[in-house]
Design a protein around this nucleic acid. Sequence first.
DNA 1: CAATATGAGTGGCCAGACCACTTTCAAATT
DNA 2: AATTTGAAAGTGGTCTGGCCACTCATATTG
Lengths: 216, 216
Amino acid sequence: MNQSKRYLDIVKEIRDMIRHEKIRPGDRIPSERELAEKLQVGRSTLREALRSLELLGLIETRRGEGTFLSDHRNHKLVEVLSTFILQDNQSREDVWETRLMHEISAIQSICNNKALAELRIWDSFKKRLESESFQRADFVRELMVLSGNRLSLKIWFLLHQYSGSPYSHEVAEDEKELMQPILDALENQQEEKAIHAFKTWSEWIEKRRMLNGDNS
Amino acid sequence: MNQSKRYLDIVKEIRDMIRHEKIRPGDRIPSERELAEKLQVGRSTLREALRSLELLGLIETRRGEGTFLSDHRNHKLVEVLSTFILQDNQSREDVWETRLMHEISAIQSICNNKALAELRIWDSFKKRLESESFQRADFVRELMVLSGNRLSLKIWFLLHQYSGSPYSHEVAEDEKELMQPILDALENQQEEKAIHAFKTWSEWIEKRRMLNGDNS
DNA sequence: CAATATGAGTGGCCAGACCACTTTCAAATT
DNA sequence: AATTTGAAAGTGGTCTGGCCACTCATATTG
């Protein structure tokens, strides 16, 4: 018969097993060696099934501890799918534009979040801006987190990694006076100003990147 | 170093390789043994990555022949995955917001494209709006195409499929007076108006969807 | 010329071996 | 007695090398 794709059967068997044994999200499932023994398959074949489930975000594995059923809130698949979708859109500009789109949208969201405004979180940003070690990426990522849209955060992170990481640098000294207005505007919930300041900073980075020879 | 999750790196490396070698859907990718050699990794580890990609429908393997890049416009898997991912309300909301973000950004882009304005393409939209058979999805997708950002288009298409396809309906009769202002504003490159009109339409659709019991 | 056999190449699968890491618990130390 | 230490067991992560089943192009045979 068409006996190929043993690992697909395993995926199914594991799913059934989870159902029958009433394993709940967060619970541990049997070890790879146990499962392989139980299902009468080689460990590497079993692992092919487990890795697939992991990539789907259905299980979570921690070395030295075991494999756990994950609470399926993972957007990992978007990550993977998008990664492959990007393959034929190598246009740098598209990536740049799209990333910026997500960032600006996050800023809009932040400015319209009243609960956030009362938390006085921007002081800490300003303080850190003055200390020497300040990564661009950290700053922007925290903005994405503050927006509250986890999916957008995931997509952004992917684009960030993909775009040759223009943010993966320390903030330069003359760069800080470009970032200061962003923080000021965010603090006062001035959406237009914040976006404008952010775009200015963003374009500054892009120019800077063009000057230095850049390659992915 | 990047501890654990070697197979995830491999997924990434394979993607890079595909991009650089300009492998297109349907093409064959190197054999497992070749890839393992090239990426300096054991074959079983490599297979974990390949099996994962296969389960996602990104590649297709045929015993005795080889491994092939598959067309990622494979609708089936998106449906399967969305059953896991979109159970969470927060996720649904994130998808909705993110999709809207891409749409609005596309509108902005269109309004700022002067070359586009001279093409008088909106007349044909208006005509089609009057004819009976007009799918929401077609309308929005064409907007995405017109924006010129192919990456954003791809992401939008994914989100569109995820989100239980609120656009997969014919345009209702009383809906057309909501869409008319969008086209008017686009024709005159009135960014603010176009976005506002689009949001109005979008919220109308969302309300409509909430009324009808909807589940994918 | 047609049918067949062969061999190279491929994915499918397995067993066994290390390694790195976490947890546990008993022995050693204080 | 309480604390620290460390050895052992268990786990996932990885690699090697092997065998099998299948496909395909080529050579051989009728």
